[in-house]
Design a protein around this nucleic acid. Structure first.
Length: 775
DNA sequence: GTTCGCAGCGTTTTT
DNA sequence: CGCTGCGAAC
């Protein structure tokens, strides 16, 4: 049991207290993941069958990481039968096998937020409701809120208080809309994210035999990030654990940052009330960060009223003070960060992977991408628009979804006329109205066109098109019975004309779209191969679809992780650690967000977010903020974040005193430094860029071209080309092998390469998109 | 039925 | 600014 060695007293207790309810309050950096991992290992060593263990996490990333670490301790085969995953994926799996209880098909589709929103928009349109009062996103948030609190349509309609509440918000039709939305999803054979939890609750409450079955299976339950569970998740855990009560929850109330999606901090605050016999273990020693960082973070989080008292401390070196940089603009800030990374990379021999840039909102990425790219610093952006949310990818996926679940009206409407095949809006509307009037689904109408044709009022040309379309879908379905998912998907991409449609668009964006589709095919192939290697793998199309529905992963998770700077939102950074952290955009109305500055609760959550961000840092932290920022298409003045003033200056060091004093004396003059400039934002931007280039880099000369052209080019999706130089032999996905004749361009985004291919002749390629491999 | 262009809008965080 | 949705013209 060497794995028990090296645990401190509290960790040891948390790992070895196997029976009964246990709450582990794990301060930031206190070895939480280690404890969870060791605990599972210890369970298995103590002859608990992994089959009886359920471990729930919040992100796929966390689940994956933990699985790997457990496999290292107990071995691959032992780890396999353990159930570990996100709430959503674990319960989606259970729902699939028990769907018949709920009147759902087991092949139900899982809708992501975008799908749900589309369905809701249709509902709103149908209902002839004032679109200004009922903004889809707002309505969706309310519905989501109901669901997460287990308020079904029925419960809603029976609750005058809720109805009154919505009436007061000027939304008296919420009940009706809610009903219609739920009906639509049901008709489509689909569940949204919230349904996965709500329906699980329904399953466990309405069918005691099902509950008993899973209670018996999951005798040992572990929940990571318990502070972020919502009510729905809380009830599921509670129900499952109520037989054996071997439940271990791990969390840190100071790191609860998901209340916007229903997380209820009281779940962890009240754990003792739910399980009076619970053992509580506090992990307070932070092994991750320097004393200075830990202490600085403690000062800020102590401003929160709502929290357990903890004493997180570090025995590490005291460490550097946190350096605070005040910048003139977002571009200036990005430039500072990039220069700083470059410098530390050179002077302290830090790898690029040692650095993280953390921000509040995804829209802040761009400026940093620009500066990093200019300095040829490799980076990777996490999060943002997921690969699977791109339109071209979703379109192909919609076809595949339709093959699995032909009732999926959302998928159908997405592709019935894409690529255009003459089935326009008018025809679709007729179909919908007719199907409604006959009280059947559109699928039924399409499947029995012969019978319905005379009643539809459509001309023969259109009817033929509809028949052809449906015959094609049916043919794919037949094919799916004998061929593997990849082959069918390829056939779909070709036969529907999707590939041709994309190929016709030779703009860089068009090429990139085609490549994304190819990438989808690749990832599918990868998935199939991976599943085939697994003993209990499932290479089916439906399994593939489920996996992508529940993963917000960007495309290149499997791709090589080179030496790259990480860029991500603070939310995404939870659970991670980096030697050097740049926390940027520390401005009022940005962080804390203007959306979350009205109530104390909201502000406390922002403060916890700040705490999370700072405690990601191991050795060094840098803060920065800009006095003016280019956003919403114009320049906005900004004040430093209140979190900065909440800190103890003993932990800080202001690193640009010159600029500081210049500004301190003239409050509110920030914009006046640009008085000699035209007011147009465009000019402003230009000037900024020019300035930064001059200040930090020599002008592009022939000498400087080479490093740019030979650098790793990172495109926005994160894929990278190898270092390409003139004379290199390269391989291209489609054109095969060739020689690079010529490189052209200084803008790393737009370097063109002339390549002579053995068979295809000379081509001009944009390096960023071409994905050339050096051979 | 399709395409293009413009206006208006929102803009936090994720399974 | 960038996206969506809508209306007008082909």
């Amino acid at each position: 049991m060497d794995y028990l060695k090296g645990l401190n007293e509290a960790q040891y207790e948390a790992v070895t207290t196997l029976e009964g309810p246990l709450m582990v309050l794990a301060g930031a950096g206190s070895g939480k993941t280690r404890v969870l991992t060791m605990r599972i290992a210890h369970l298995i060593t103590n002859l608990v069958d992994p089959f009886h263990i359920l471990a729930l996490t919040f992100t796929n990333k966390a689940a994956k990481e933990m699985k790997e670490r457990i496999a290292k301790v107990v071995g691959q085969s032992e780890a396999r039968s353990l159930w570990m995953g996100t709430f959503h994926s674990v319960f989606a799996r259970i729902l699939r096998s028990e769907a018949h209880y709920l009147g759902y098909p087991s092949n139900f589709t899982i809708y992501d937020s975008q799908d749900s929103l589309n369905v809701l928009k249709k509902v709103l349109k149908d209902s002839n409701i004032d679109a200004d009062l009922y903004k889809p996103k707002k309505v969706m948030a309310r519905i989501s809120n109901y669901k997460n609190n287990l308020i079904t349509v029925k419960a809603y309609l029976a609750n005058p208080e809720l109805i009154e509440n919505d009436e007061r918000a000027n939304m008296k039709h919420m009940g009706l809309i809610y009903q219609k939305y739920v009906d639509a999803c049901y008709r489509n054979g689909a569940m949204d994210f919230d349904d996965l939890l709500l329906r699980t609750n329904e399953l466990l409450t309405r069918f005691p035999e099902v509950l008993a079955k899973y209670q018996d299976r999951f005798r040992y339950i572990l929940v990571d990030e318990y502070q972020d569970t919502n009510h729905s998740q809380y009830l599921i855990v509670k129900a499952l654990a109520s037989k054996f009560e071997n439940i271990c929850v791990v969390g840190d109330d100071a790191q609860s940052i998901y209340s916007f999606r229903g997380a209820n901090i009281h779940n962890i605050l009240n754990f003792k009330k739910d399980y009076p016999d619970a053992v509580t273990v506090s992990l307070e020693q932070n092994y991750r960060s320097t004393q200075n960082i830990v202490n600085a973070a403690n000062v800020v989080i102590s401003k929160n009223v709502q929290q357990f008292k903890k004493n997180v401390f570090s025995d590490n070196e005291e460490g550097d003070k946190i350096k605070v940089y005040r910048s003139l603009s977002d571009a200036d800030e990005a430039n500072f960060v990039a220069s700083n990374i470059w410098e530390l990379h050179n002077t302290q021999q830090r790898k690029f992977t040692d650095f993280a840039i953390l921000y509040r909102t995804n829209s802040q990425t761009r400026a940093f991408e620009d500066s990093l790219r200019r300095k040829n610093i490799p980076y990777r952006v996490y999060g943002g628009l997921s690969f699977y949310q791109r339109k071209e990818v979703k379109d192909l996926v919609a076809y595949l979804r339709l093959l699995i679940n032909e009732n999926d009206g959302e998928a159908l409407s997405r592709i019935i006329n894409y690529p255009a095949r003459g089935i326009g809006e008018t025809t679709q509307n007729k179909l919908i109205v007719f199907a409604d009037s006959q009280n059947v689904s559109i699928t039924t109408v399409l499947g029995n066109l012969g019978m319905y044709a005379p009643l539809l009022g459509l001309n023969n040309g259109i009817l033929t098109k509809l028949a052809d379309f449906w015959a094609m879908i049916k043919a794919f379905q037949v094919m799916l019975k004998t061929e593997n998912a990849y082959t069918v998907a390829m056939e779909v991409a070709k036969r529907t004309g999707l590939i041709k449609f994309l190929k016709d668009d030779q703009t860089p964006e068009g090429i990139s779209r085609l490549e994304n589709v190819q990438e989808l095919m690749n990832s599918m192939q990868g998935f199939i191969e991976e599943q085939q290697q697994l003993e209990d793998g499932d290479p089916s199309l439906s399994n593939f679809l489920e996996n992508i529905a529940l993963s917000a992963d960007t495309q290149n998770d499997k791709k090589e992780e080179g030496d790259q700077v990480s860029l991500m939102t603070i939310h995404l950074s939870k659970g991670l650690e980096f030697p050097v952290v740049h926390l940027v955009g520390l401005e009022e109305n940005l962080f804390p967000s203007f959306m979350s500055s009205s109530t104390r609760e909201e502000l406390e959550e922002e403060r916890r977010l700040f705490y999370v961000a700072l405690t990601r840092a191991e050795k060094q932290a840098f803060f920065s903020y800009a006095v003016s920022r280019f956003q919403w298409g114009k320049i906005t003045d900004a004040e430093p974040s209140r979190f900065l003033s909440e800190m103890d200056t003993a932990h800080l060091e202001f690193i640009n005193p010159a600029i500081e004093s210049r500004f301190v004396n003239h409050s509110g003059l920030k914009s006046s430094i640009f008085d000699d400039e035209p007011a147009s934002p465009r000019f402003f931007k230009k000037k900024e860029e020019k300035k930064t280039i001059q200040r930090n880099e020599p002008l592009p000369t022939a000498q400087n071209l080479k490093p740019v052209a030979t650098a790793r080019i990172i495109n926005p999706s994160g894929a990278s080309s190898e270092d390409i130089e003139v004379g290199d032999q390269v391989r291209h996905d489609r054109f095969g092998v060739g020689e690079v004749l010529f490189l052209d361009g200084t803008d790393p985004q737009n370097i063109k390469a002339k390549v002579k291919f053995q068979h295809e002749g000379e081509k001009n390629l944009i390096l960023k998109f071409a994905k050339l491999t050096k051979i």
